[in-house]
Design a protein around this nucleic acid. Structure first.
Length: 368
DNA sequence: AACAGTCTCAACCGCCTCGAG
DNA sequence: TCTCGAGGCGGTTGAGACTGT
């Protein structure tokens, strides 16, 4: 026995939303607020089921939603949270302000998942894949798209590659004025992925693996300094990096702790002693919480973003004639495309002497 | 220019959770 | 305690945009 679909009814419309429908929904919610989704279609004059209205609102029309390219920092956060939480998109979304679970899920499936495989990491366990043959098989089966091999850099790493030119950004809207697929901005032309970026992603993924091991150990009650240092060091870091550290007369553990903003032993740790204690006091039913880190990132960004793409879209919908094509292209795509997090990537960039190899291509910035 | 193949992501589907009665 | 329904969630689909030939 299965539950009846909620959207069974004569004349209910499906498929892409039109500007007219968006306008009705925005107008209704503006006047009456969210909630009571089942009643909204009738009251708002929409031939949609309530669930469809809710999804359209929460995933697209809601003013605070941020759209466009994911920043490098957001990608890092997604990868790490996925390592600790799995496909809990709503949980991950709670840690990425203004991103929807649906968008994160899509981004994971179309970009990050394939990239991890490409990096030789299991996208489920975040551990290195068993063998080279396994990597090859996975790559083959997943059919990594050529476009995905070109990595879009965030502006937070401006010195590493040229910023996107306006002509490379595909500003799109449907003929009826609704945002086309890809939202207000679809950056189809990717930047060539540098090997340094690839290596950095490897490290991020490896860090995620390390975090997962630490979490597991913590939850099993077996966490100790050895677990941390070994997890940080041995999971996923290349032999080359180890050699670099061996040659540097610097304690491996100390170096990675210094690199790791999550590390309680880091000189640059984002945590206070109190937070560290709380962090290591993870219960069995609790997951790791990066909110402190995110709060710190947010605190580093005093500039409050006031101009949201969706605010503008909603505003235009409400103010414009329905037949008039919405000028979504008037939005400052560049600002919206680029995240404002300046946290971890800045930290990484400030420690590039061991993040990037000396033979990095297209690197203008090197060790400080 | 035309066509076919590929990729992206908005939207849908069905199950789950939780609160109200 | 049980039932029901609204809302939430994660997996999947398919239209349309993009790319290569």
């Amino acid at each position: 026995m299965s539950r009846k679909p909620c959207c069974v009814g004569e004349g209910l419309k499906k498929g892409a939303w039109t500007t007219e429908e968006d306008k009705k929904l925005i107008s209704y919610i503006h006047d009456h607020g969210e909630g009571g989704w089942r009643d909204i279609p009738g009251k708002a004059g929409l031939k949609r089921c309530g669930k469809s209205c809710r999804l359209r609102w929460t995933n697209y029309l809601k003013p605070e939603i941020k759209r466009g390219e994911f920043s490098f920092e957001e990608e890092q956060i997604i990868i790490m949270l996925h390592a600790s939480r799995g496909n809990k998109w709503s949980v991950i979304a709670r840690h990425l302000p203004r991103r929807t679970d649906n968008e994160i899920k899509n981004y994971w499936n179309t970009h990050l998942k394939k990239r991890l495989i490409e990096q030789g990491l299991d996208p489920v366990t975040h551990k290195p894949l068993a063998s080279n043959s396994t990597v090859a098989e996975n790559l083959h089966s997943v059919n990594v798209p050529s476009s995905d091999k070109q990595y879009p850099r965030s502006s937070s790493m401006p010195s590493l590659s040229p910023p996107p030119s306006g002509s490379e950004m595909t500003k799109s809207s449907n003929s009826d004025g609704t945002p086309a697929q890809g939202g207000f901005l679809s950056c189809k032309k990717r930047f060539k992925k540098s090997s340094s970026t690839s290596r950095l992603l490897n490290r991020v993924a490896a860090k995620a693996t390390s975090m997962k091991d630490i979490l597991s150990a913590s939850m099993e009650g077996s966490l100790n300094a050895t677990t941390i240092s070994h997890a940080s060091f041995f999971n996923g870091f290349s032999e080359q990096i180890r050699n670099e550290q061996d040659n540097s007369n610097v304690s491996l553990t100390n170096t990675f702790d210094e690199f790791d903003p999550f590390s309680p032993f880091s000189q640059s740790s984002l945590y206070t002693e109190q937070e560290i204690n709380a962090t290591f006091d993870l219960g069995m039913d609790q997951g790791y919480d990066f909110s402190h880190f995110l709060e710190k990132l947010g605190a580093d960004n005093p500039k409050e973003e006031k101009s949201y793409m969706n605010v503008e879209y909603g505003h235009e919908l409400l103010m414009s004639d329905v037949s008039q094509e919405v000028s979504s292209t008037s939005v400052d795509d560049q600002d919206n495309m680029i995240g404002n997090f300046e946290g971890w990537s800045s930290y990484l960039l400030d420690h590039t002497d061991f993040i990037y190899d000396t033979d990095s291509d297209s690197l203008e910035k090197h060790s400080m």
